[in-house]
Design a protein around this nucleic acid. Structure first.
Lengths: 208, 208
DNA sequence: CTCTAGTGATACCGGACGGTATCATTCGGG
DNA sequence: CCCGAATGATACCGTCCGGTATCACTAGAG
């Protein structure tokens, strides 16, 4: 049976590997990769350094696995938004933008894990970098597809613009240069999706 | 009179402080702040660690000074673009965008120093963070002013959109998710500045 | 029960780091 | 010419880091 997956000693705990990944997630996100030592992760996971090195070859491998999970979560959110509006690419794009916009407040202290990790890992051969690269490539491919389905005349350009705006909203929120970034972001993406786009004017004709 | 500022031993060298800042610039930009040790900076500057600590209280102070210089260079480019098109805010904005777009290839390996530094310095109280914050705030203020002068109906929104797109183009170039980011960036900013903006269509009416 | 695989705990290693102390050297101004 | 300030060179300190070795323990399978 085992209602709880395991029960090592007293409290119901997740297996060590999960605890390690959870701890790594929290620490890497809030403090950065290089500032967080393996020891700190172990303490937060209520285990030891040795346990970490039993489950992950090196710290870099742990970093890569963390980013793999973040990317998977992101993709899952992408899937969810897509499934909520089947056959309606414009709504899908807006849903994605809303997902990002709603995540901005949580991101305001520390920014996007991918952007931050790239900054902390200059060498492109790092395993984590390849995880990010693949994720971003897939993300772009999907977005281009959505833009094409939405009937936008130049899907690549539209996807580039949406990508720019989404990324820019995150970094601008992080560095505090733009306030109400979420609202502004939504208005911009709406203008892109509705082609007539005059987001700066007062006209607010949402066709369909 | 000292035709050359100084000539310590053999080759004409800049004074140590300049050499240190130059070395720091190169190393911080290409490797990141935390990956670069004071020793490495000293070697690159053809001096010693002690010399660095004679000119800068701590490594953090050196980082802050470096970013202050980067911000100043940036502001200078901003000034130059502004002076090239006096009284023509639209041309000024486009010039700024072009400045960024042309800098993208050089940035493709390592990204924007401000974005990277924020990622490497999680604590907002860090002196370098305050340098960045001030710079970004001033940047936004100037851009809003330009948008207002250009007669755009909602200058704050337009400035936000331009900021998002500029920042997003930089991170997207860095992570390789968008190709031809420079061209795409220019088309987007043109569309923002010319309000009729249908950058995705084939119409290419560049008035004036 | 016994055997084994996974886990917890501790100590350790070599290296890099930020920062300091000390002393020799050089150079320009008086 | 000489003095003092700035610089160069080297050694050092305490700390933290990634990673390893060792040993005791627990729990589940047979």
């Amino acid at each position: 049976m085992a209602s709880t997956a395991r029960r090592p000693s007293r409290v119901a705990k997740l297996p060590p590997r999960e605890r390690i990944l959870d701890a790594a997630e929290e620490l890497f996100q809030s403090e950065g990769i290089r500032r967080v030592g393996v020891q700190a992760i172990a303490e937060r996971a209520e285990t030891t350094k040795m346990a970490i090195y039993r489950h992950f070859e090196t710290k870099d491998a742990l970093v890569a696995e963390w980013l793999r999970i973040v990317a998977a979560d992101y993709q899952a959110a992408f899937d969810r938004v897509e499934a909520e509006h089947p056959g309606r690419p414009r709504e899908q794009i807006l849903g994605l933008a809303r997902f990002i916009a709603e995540g901005l407040p949580a991101i305001s202290h520390r920014g996007c894990p991918f952007i931050n990790s790239i900054a902390e890992l200059p060498d492109r051969s790092h395993p984590a970098r390849q995880v990010i690269e693949k994720h971003k490539a897939r993300q772009t491919r999907r977005l281009v597809g959505m833009c094409a389905e939405a009937g936008l005349p130049d899907p690549e350009q539209a996807a580039a613009e949406i990508t720019f705006v989404l990324e820019g909203a995150q970094v601008s929120t992080q560095n505090g240069s733009i306030d109400q970034a979420g609202d502004r972001l939504m208005r911009i993406v709406e203008a892109i999706v509705d082609q007539h786009r005059s987001p700066l004017g007062t006209s607010r004709a949402t066709t369909d």
